[in-house]
Amino acid sequence: MREHIGRFVKQLPNSLDQSTTSPFEEMTVRDFLRMFVYHALHHIDQITETRKIHN
């Protein structure tokens, strides 16, 4: 996924500042990626916590 996003950003000048529509609202690609990364990190935290509980 990171490679795909990286290629996308490199191929489109100023792509991070372009507008896109998420399932909830219109936002910049930059803000959408920020939300995507936060969501992924949240899942990683959940997995880490589950692994601690279950050894």
Score class of each variant (00 low, 15 high):
Val29Thr: 04
Val9Pro: 01
Val9Ser: 00
Asp17Arg: 12
His42Cys: 02
Ile53Gly: 03
Lys10Cys: 04
Gln18Trp: 03
Glu25Pro: 08
His54Thr: 13
Val37Cys: 15
Asn55Gly: 11
Pro13Phe: 05
Ile47Pro: 11
Leu16Tyr: 07
His39Met: 05
Glu26Leu: 13
Leu33Met: 10
Thr21Leu: 12
Met27Leu: 14
Lys52Trp: 05
Gln46Glu: 12
Leu41Glu: 08
Asn14Tyr: 05
Pro13Cys: 11
Ile53Lys: 12
Ala40Met: 14
Thr21Gln: 15
Ala40Gln: 15
Asn14Cys: 07
Met1Trp: 09
Gln18Val: 02
Asn14His: 08
Asn14Met: 11
Lys52His: 09
Pro13Val: 07
Thr48Ser: 12
Leu33Cys: 10
Glu3Cys: 00
Gln18Glu: 10
His42Met: 04
His39Ile: 08
Pro23His: 04
Ser22Ile: 10
Ser22Asp: 02
Ile5Ala: 01
Glu3His: 02
Asn55Pro: 00
Leu16Trp: 01
Gln11His: 08
Leu12Arg: 02
Glu25Arg: 13
Glu26Ala: 15
Glu3Ala: 01
Pro13Ala: 13
His39Pro: 04
Asp31Pro: 08
Met27Lys: 09
Ile5Pro: 00
Met35His: 12
Ile53Met: 07
Val37Glu: 14
Thr21Pro: 06
His4Ile: 09
Ile44Asp: 11
Gln18His: 09
Thr48Glu: 11
His42Ser: 09
Pro13His: 08
Val29Ile: 12
Thr20Phe: 01
Thr28Tyr: 00
Glu26Arg: 14
Thr48Gln: 07
Glu49Tyr: 06
Met35Leu: 11
Ala40Arg: 15
Thr50Ile: 10
Leu41Ser: 05
His39Leu: 09
Arg30Cys: 03
Lys10Val: 05
Phe8Pro: 00
Gln18Leu: 11
Ile53His: 09
Glu25Val: 14
Ser22Gln: 06
